[in-house]
Design a protein around this nucleic acid. Structure first.
Lengths: 228, 228
DNA sequence: GAGCCTAATGACAGGCTCTGACAATTTGCA
DNA sequence: TGCAAATTGTCAGAGCCTGTCATTAGGCTC
């Protein structure tokens, strides 16, 4: 570890690389949102940033990766937030509350690379492209795995012998993706609307598993109209 | 609709097509299992069946599709089984019981195209290839959607305004995929072992969502060792 | 500041997936 | 048998991705 890594002041080489990477992400997002993921070629992105196609593939392993570059930031914030929840909280509540923390203030992080509006539109592009949906689901599954381990650690149980952490993570992850899909289907683009979708859907997980559905669905009406 | 469609006795042309299709599926499965999905090219499959690469792509839209051709049969049986469950059964129980019905007797259907052993090995290949995992997850999501509609129909609720059908389908689907992944991770290749994994995991869904995890995990011990 | 080392890039070739177009072949049917 | 339609093969080409090698540019020493 040298001086540059400690102070965060990197050389020209590192700064240049970061600028190239950000430019690729930004340009890719603009093109994907404007003309769709499938109809945008890697050559187009590379040409717009004035680098060779080969250079693009040195920054991103494949075309999909650049589309998910910013999702990683959100995921990391979520895991940090999970770690900061009080120990006594019920497992499902930890996840629900950490999600709220993760989304609040994510704006500044994203804005360093692309306008927030563009990021939110890209989220919707992901939900509409078959290829990206598949990759998104695989990434979610990986996060689910990681989450199960963290849940088990917090609860002090062994994730290999006790199935509850993995089952909870699976249910949580499943409901989250459902909420994301339904948010994409509605017209809104604000962070707040996305947050509302997530929380509302999570709050319905318990009731949905109840034995008898012939009781009233919920005291405060159907979900899409509910506001936070 | 002509005579052939009614009687099921099709002409030589139709039978020939079916044979080509089955041969492609069978050969693809053998190659995927033997050398892996990524390391098998479409040319190899086509050459082995003695058709042109172009013909392969007339039978399957892409390389992934041939890997999932037989999964469809299982899925269809499941939906049929759901429709045959008694009306009064609790939603989650309908799904759990339909799953058992779908898997019992699936062997004969599969054996018409490939040896059952090969099919089960292919299931494991799917879980180990990043590309196929992504596609598998997308397909599961589509089935989840379809399932939610069916659940809502049975329960007599509207899937657009009442979130419970979709939430239950999401949780069910999530736990199912978890079980499939863990089955692939263990060494077994029998249908019975897969069935056992599915049922055991589903039975843990309720307890996993309980508020307090400090009570005993389950009366009959950790899951992987449990037998049906 | 000159010169060297290493990291980053560009240029090129090539493999693999997938599609469109057209010609050749095969089947079904009159 | 002979025609119409379905099926297939061949060919060309776009797009994604990788390996290789020469070139360029940044960092560091003296």
């Amino acid at each position: 570890m040298n001086r540059q890594e400690v102070t965060g002041v990197t050389g020209l080489r590192e700064r240049k690389k970061q600028r190239t990477r950000d430019a690729l992400i930004r340009t890719a997002h603009e093109l994907f949102v404007a003309q769709g993921y499938e109809r945008t070629t890697v050559d187009e992105i590379a040409d717009a940033v004035e680098v060779s196609q080969r250079t693009f593939f040195r920054y991103f392993a494949n075309k999909e990766e650049v589309a998910f570059a910013l999702q990683r930031a959100v995921e990391e914030r979520f895991f940090v937030a999970v770690g900061e929840r009080p120990e006594h909280e019920a497992p499902l509540q930890v996840l629900r509350n950490a999600l709220g923390t993760a989304w609040s203030g994510i704006g500044e992080v994203i804005e360093e690379v692309v306008p927030l509006e563009l990021f939110m539109r890209m989220c919707r592009v992901i939900e509409t492209s078959p290829t990206l949906v598949a990759v998104h689901l695989r990434r979610s599954a990986q996060q689910e795995d990681r989450l199960a381990v963290e849940i088990a650690r917090r609860a002090g149980v062994d994730p290999e012998s006790d199935p509850r952490p993995r089952v909870l993570a699976a249910a949580f992850s499943g409901v989250l993706r459902l909420a994301g899909r339904r948010w994409a289907a509605c017209g809104e683009t604000s962070i707040e609307s996305a947050q509302r979708f997530y929380e509302n859907h999570l709050d319905r997980l318990g009731p949905a598993l109840a034995e008898d559905w012939h009781a009233a669905p919920e005291s405060d009406g159907p979900l899409p109209e509910r506001r936070g």
